[in-house]
Amino acid sequence: MKIRRSRKIALVSHCILNTNAKIEGTASYPAALQQVVGLLLAHHYGIIQLPCPELRAMGLRRWGQVVEQYANPFFTEAVRSMLVPTLREIQEYVRNGYRVDLLIGIDKSPSCGVNLTCSGD
């Protein structure tokens, strides 16, 4: 029996699939955000986990930052280089007829917030 692929891909912020990447004391779920993962699977989406720029740049023992602290050419360059493999993967899916039509971020994140980011002086 051959299983037909959905050819649908969702891009998902790292900490939605792995809360362990979040700053200590900020997790509101124990492992992954089950509601998001469950909905994606129920609607037959494949999932690409985006890299966590803050984790990769600052490690696990970081403290809360705001978007203005990351708004510098050094962080921008680091994020661009870490996204290259993911962008190539996305391009390969699109080139082969897949739809990448969902981007799910995490509000309050200074680098992955969609509707709300932490901001301040």
Rank of each mutant, 00 (worst) to 15 (best):
M1C: 09
K2L: 14
I3K: 12
R4L: 15
R5Q: 07
R5L: 15
R5K: 05
S6C: 05
S6D: 03
R7F: 00
R7V: 00
K8S: 06
K8P: 05
A10H: 01
L11D: 09
S13R: 00
S13A: 08
S13K: 02
I16K: 02
L17T: 04
L17E: 07
N18H: 04
N18D: 08
N18S: 06
N18L: 00
N20K: 14
N20A: 13
N20L: 12
A21M: 00
A21C: 01
A21D: 07
A21G: 05
K22C: 15
K22H: 07
K22V: 06
I23F: 09
E24W: 04
E24L: 05
S28N: 13
Y29K: 08
Y29V: 12
Y29D: 09
P30M: 13
P30T: 14
A31G: 13
A31V: 11
A32D: 12
A32C: 12
L33A: 01
Q34R: 11
Q34V: 14
Q34G: 10
V36T: 14
V37E: 09
L39M: 05
L39F: 10
L40P: 06
L41V: 12
L41K: 14
A42S: 10
H44Y: 14
Y45P: 05
Y45E: 04
G46R: 13
I47C: 06
I48T: 07
P51N: 12
C52N: 01
C52S: 01
L55S: 11
L55T: 14
R56G: 15
A57D: 09
G59I: 04
L60I: 09
L60Q: 02
R61F: 03
R62T: 06
W63K: 06
W63F: 10
G64M: 03
G64R: 11
G64N: 03
G64Y: 01
Q65A: 15
V66R: 09
V67S: 10
V67A: 10
V67T: 11
V67I: 13
V67W: 13
V67P: 04
Y70I: 00
A71R: 06
A71H: 10
P73H: 03
F75E: 15
E77I: 03
E77W: 04
A78Q: 02
V79N: 08
V79S: 04
V79E: 02
R80M: 06
R80K: 09
R80F: 02
M82E: 04
V84Y: 03
P85G: 01
P85R: 02
T86I: 02
L87Y: 01
R88H: 10
E89P: 02
I90Q: 09
Q91G: 09
Q91P: 08
Q91I: 11
Y93S: 05
V94H: 03
R95I: 11
R95N: 15
R95C: 10
N96W: 08
Y98W: 13
R99Y: 01
D101L: 04
D101K: 02
L102I: 03
L103G: 05
L103W: 08
I104S: 07
I106T: 12
I106Q: 09
S109G: 00
S109H: 02
P110E: 01
C112G: 12
C112I: 05
C112M: 08
V114E: 09
V114I: 07
N115S: 09
C118V: 07
C118E: 14
C118H: 11
C118D: 11
C118L: 14
S119G: 13
G120T: 08
G120F: 13
